[in-house]
Design a protein around this nucleic acid. Structure first.
Ligand SMILES: Nc1nc2c(ncn2[C@H]2C[C@H](O)[C@@H](COP(=O)(O)OP(=O)(O)OP(=O)(O)O)O2)c(=O)[nH]1
Ligand SMILES: [Mg+2]
Ligand SMILES: [Mg+2]
Ligand SMILES: [Zn+2]
Length: 582
DNA sequence: GCCGTTTTCGGCCCGACTGTTTTCAGTCG
């Protein structure tokens, strides 16, 4: 899969064109194409193979030809040419916050600066301030920006950013004169990683709120401080943007600040065609500049002829068209989830006892819960031997008698071996209520073998769910090479569900993969994979991911009521008796 | 460079904050 690589190539071209002073629209075209390829659910090679590159929105004749050349030969003549014209190191300067194409060009042409290293040196020696429109503050700002760049480690996983953002949100809500406050930006859209924390507030005196915000003890440095917005950096190197508007502007501001950028641009272009101007203060009729909406988000969308669009869909991936024609999906919600199908206990690598995990599931109001400890070959996490399976089943029978308000199902997270066979014999698997099969080793396998391996597991009649189907760990491990389309097709045929594992460092399947599942008519299971009682709450992240993947309740295995779930799994609907289990 | 129920040519979202400016360019959201 060369999507990330191809997207980066286009981004590099965009950077160089920008430094060259090319048309901003041309630059934007390259960035848009890069974004489209980055979020493409299938390998770009496969699209190129079918000769369908131009079908990708944002990719036209010219970029399609460049991509084809790059994918075929591994290089791109146009790019090599550009690198002759624009010193490659110059693009690196754009990574420094506050440095754009104009300053990069200026620094290179006047001082020969073509690396962050050289930029830092020049700033320290006060050479920058000799240049036009560059003073001591800019120089100082550049040094600080370089330091920040080195201190931070890319995008933050949602699982870290969201709790931190909620803490700050409560602080903001407590500031004097604040009326309302909410999360916005990528947090509100539920992206798996977050660039910065975007918070929105309303107040009759916005400037006073911003003043209080930047004066908070949590603000280790202040990057911007104006009458309507402020930006701070926390000790943990998280950047927080707060935007503050008047109460009557809140809806328009929330729409703006939730984004995404691409969604906003599309919405605003659509509005203009309909005779309106949209900004963060409201919707204005072009003819007389009268404000006709802005108090609520819904009003903003309705005024331009759209249904209200759930934030998770706002990526300009077809949601605006769907909203225009009334075809938005009815997205799954946390309240639709009837049970968690993937929990671990201290019988394998979980922290808490079987009973504690069941209590936690009851506390969440679940109708059913599946205990799915690891299988025998996972010796290092105490995978269950045949004897311990029987023993655990006995415990579950007891617990079912003790807790009639929840049905406890006996499952397993069975290891998929290198050849696609499973860790337990068929007779053993048949005794479980729910079987989740997952890959936990041999992930470096080539695409063909890995696909065969996983297909075999998916088609195994005993397997109900394929666990964390691509194996990615955010920031640590790339997804394995696998033909996911083939896996999804097989899942649709065999009735095996594909998991959306809600562990925030996994979120696997990811959003765009999940959308393929829905389109293929297969099902997903949204599971916490909890290893402790509090981790049942991680399901929230899986729900966000599912919603971003246009998943509806009807696509979700664990949104089924118990009876229907068991029927679908081909299991008897009454609890096992102890005698039968023993 | 892309794209089309207003266009195959001529548009392409709209605004805040900073620093350095004597009137606004650059950068970012
Ligand atoms: N209209 C418009 N809105 C923008 C633009 N750039 C950003 N926004 C809006 C939409 C974004 O979701 C919101 C917050 O900006 P961010 O840069 O923080 O982006 P976002 O949070 O979406 O992603 P992130 O995870 O922070 O990288 O501001 C723009 O160029 N035009
Ligand atoms: Mg953001
Ligand atoms: Mg932001
Ligand atoms: Zn697990």
């Amino acid at each position: 899969m060369k999507n990330a690589e191809a997207a980066e190539l286009l981004q590099n071209i965009a950077d160089m064109l920008e430094i060259k002073g090319e048309s901003p629209f041309r630059v934007r075209a390259y960035r848009e194409a890069a974004r489209a390829i980055e979020t493409l659910a299938e390998p770009i090679e496969a699209v190129a193979e079918r000769d369908e590159l131009e079908e990708i929105p944002g990719v036209g004749e010219s970029i399609a030809a460049k991509l084809a050349e790059y994918l075929e030969t591994g290089t791109l003549a146009y790019y090599e040419d550009l690198r002759e014209q624009v010193r490659p190191g110059l693009a690196e300067l754009l990574e420094v916050p506050g440095i754009g194409p104009k300053k990069a060009k200026l620094f290179y042409e006047q001082l020969g600066i073509d690396s962050i290293e050289k930029l830092e040196k020049a700033a320290r020696e006060h050479k920058l301030r000799t240049l036009p429109r560059i003073g001591p503050k800019t120089e100082e700002g550049i040094l600080n920006a370089i330091e920040r760049l080195r201190g931070r480690s890319g995008r933050t996983p949602l699982g870290i950013a969201l709790p931190a953002a909620r803490e700050f949100l409560e602080i903001v809500r407590g500031l004097k004169d604040v009326r309302q406050a909410d999360l916005a930006g990528s947090l509100r859209r539920g992206r798996d990683t977050i660039g910065d924390l975007d918070l929105l507030a309303s107040s009759d005196d916005p400037a006073r709120v911003v003043d209080q915000f930047v004066a908070l003890p949590g603000a280790k440095s202040i990057l911007a401080h104006g009458p309507t917005k402020g930006t701070i950096v926390t000790a943990e190197h998280l950047q927080i943007d707060l935007r503050v508007v008047k109460p009557e502007e809140y809806g328009a501001a929330l729409q703006y600040f939730t984004g995404s950028k691409a969604h906003n641009i599309h919405l605003r272009a659509l509005a203009e065609a309909a005779g309106y101007k949209v900004n963060e203060y409201g919707v204005f009729r072009t003819s007389d500049d009268r404000r006709v909406a802005g108090e609520t988000e819904k009003g903003v969308y309705q005024t331009v002829g759209l249904e209200w669009i759930p934030p998770e869909l706002r990526e300009d991936q077809g949601e605006i068209e769907a909203a225009a024609s009334g075809d938005l999906p009815d997205l799954v919600e946390l309240a639709d989830i009837r049970g968690d199908l993937h929990l671990h206990t201290d019988w394998s690598d979980g922290r808490d006892s079987l009973e504690q995990m069941v209590e936690a599931a009851r506390a969440r109001g679940y109708e059913y819960v599946v205990i799915s400890d690891h299988s025998v070959s996972m010796g290092f996490v105490h995978g269950l031997t045949l004897e311990r399976i029987q023993e655990q089943r006995g415990r579950i029978v007891e617990l079912n008698e003790r807790y009639p308000d929840i049905r406890i199902l006996h499952g397993t997270e069975v290891n998929i071996r290198a050849d696609g066979s499973l860790d337990y014999e068929d007779e053993v698997l048949a005794e479980f209520d729910v079987v989740t099969a997952s890959v936990h080793s041999g992930m470096g396998m080539d695409r063909e073998r890995m696909t065969r391996r996983i297909l075999r597991a998916v088609r195994n009649p005993h397997v109900d769910i394929l666990g964390h189907p691509t194996g990615r760990i955010l920031g640590k491990r790339e997804p394995y090479e696998v033909d996911l389309q083939a896996v999804i097709r097989a899942a649709a045929e065999s009735g095996t569900a594909l998991e959306i594992n809600a562990q925030p460092d996994r979120l696997d399947l990811k959003d765009t993969d999940a959308r393929l599942v829905a389109e293929a008519g297969a099902m997903v299971a949204i599971n916490s994979d909890a290893h402790s009682v509090e981790q049942l709450g991680l399901l929230e992240y899986g729900i966000a991911t599912a919603r971003r993947g246009w998943i509806e309740r009807k696509h979700v295995l664990n949104a089924l009521p118990l009876e229907q779930l068991l029927r679908r799994l081909g299991r008897p609907t009454t609890p096992a008796r102890y005698a039968l289990a023993a």
